[in-house]
């Protein structure tokens, strides 16, 4: 399918700071496309160039078949934007913001349901300055959805939200996609990207260092699964080490760890333990995460 967003050799510097070096990618319709990377990697510069808010030094960008720089007005009618850095006037009320922003667009959806959906129903008459960080964040998401956009950009969507609010925000973002919209999600939370995104671009120092589905990215760096368990009663490690699927078995205290190929380790281990009537407690599996992908690729933690 043709891409909704197409970025080719995007380059942008601020003075001598190269924020985006050479970035190219496509976003397919109806997907959640994640852009992840450490602070200062160039994520916001990339998406803001796509929105038409920043002028790239070179390269070309196309959104919905339009050029966001020469056709900014047409593009901004059809995209929804939640910026990492933005504010409303302190004394503006929540409903006034929604009402005002509605007047900027040709096509809008009623804002009352959005208010309820994003948990701001009882904050309708609250002033912006009196909202909590999470409430401000949700108000900006509601503003981003007012024009029923085809593409939604969310830059650092869950920063400042409590863990529970983060999870419910994830569900709402998945809902946005399920309604047929394309979502570009910028985040430095790897778990968020892993949970939500169909494709992820990992950016570091202004370049894409990896781009794939989260599952394939993880597989590439580490296709090993670890099954750990404790045993009640007699157990001989032979039972497992003789299995072709198990590459290694080790013990630390009461806890055993069997390693092997992610695709078939678990069932082989469980069946063997079962057949030998081993009484197993507290069985867990561990896999690499997107965070591990990042560490492997860059040799650093994302938040050093």
């Amino acid at each position: 399918m043709n891409p909704v967003i197409s970025v080719n050799h995007l380059h942008k510097a601020y003075g001598t700071t190269v924020a985006v070096d050479d970035i190219s990618f496509n976003v397919a319709p109806g997907e959640i496309f994640g852009i992840v990377g450490p602070n200062g990697a160039g994520k916001s510069t990339t998406v803001e160039s796509i929105m038409g808010l920043r002028e790239p030094d070179s390269g070309n960008v196309s959104v919905l078949g339009l050029n966001p720089h020469t056709q900014r007005s047409a593009v901004s009618q059809r995209i929804g934007i939640q910026l990492q850095q933005a504010a409303l006037p302190d004394r503006m009320k929540v409903w006034e913001a929604l009402d005002l922003y509605s007047s900027f667009y040709t096509n809008t959806i009623p804002w009352e349901p959005l208010l309820e959906e994003w948990g701001l129903g009882d904050k309708r008459n609250a002033r912006f300055v009196n909202l909590s960080g999470g409430q401000k964040q949700r108000l900006f998401i509601a503003l981003a959805l007012l024009n029923d956009p085809d593409v939604v950009f969310l830059d650092e969507l869950t920063t400042g939200l409590d863990p529970q609010a983060r999870r419910s925000t994830w569900d709402l973002v998945a809902d946005i996609r399920d309604r047929g919209k394309t979502v570009v999600l910028v985040t430095h939370f790897m778990d968020e990207a892993e949970a939500l995104c169909d494709h992820v671009a990992i950016i570091d120092h202004g370049n894409i260092i990896a781009l794939d589905t989260p599952a394939r990215l993880i597989e590439q760096v580490d296709d090993e699964l670890r099954v750990t368990f404790e045993v009640d009663g007699p157990f001989s490690a032979e039972i497992l080490s003789s299995l072709p699927q198990v590459s290694d078995i080790s013990r630390s205290g009461r806890r055993w760890t069997a390693r092997g190929d992610a695709r078939n380790l678990l069932s082989a281990v469980v069946i063997a333990l079962e057949q030998n009537a081993v009484r197993v407690t507290n069985l867990q599996t561990e896999r690499a995460s997107l965070e591990d992908v990042f560490i492997t690729l860059t040799g650093r933690q994302i938040r050093a």
């Binding site: 399918m1 197409s6 919905l64 078949g65 009618q77």
Partner: peptide, 13 residues
């Protein structure tokens, strides 16, 4: 590149 990009059926607003 532009020619390969999806042009949505909706009119430009």
């Amino acid at each position: 590149q532009d020619s390969t990009v999806l042009t949505q059926p909706t009119a430009i607003h």
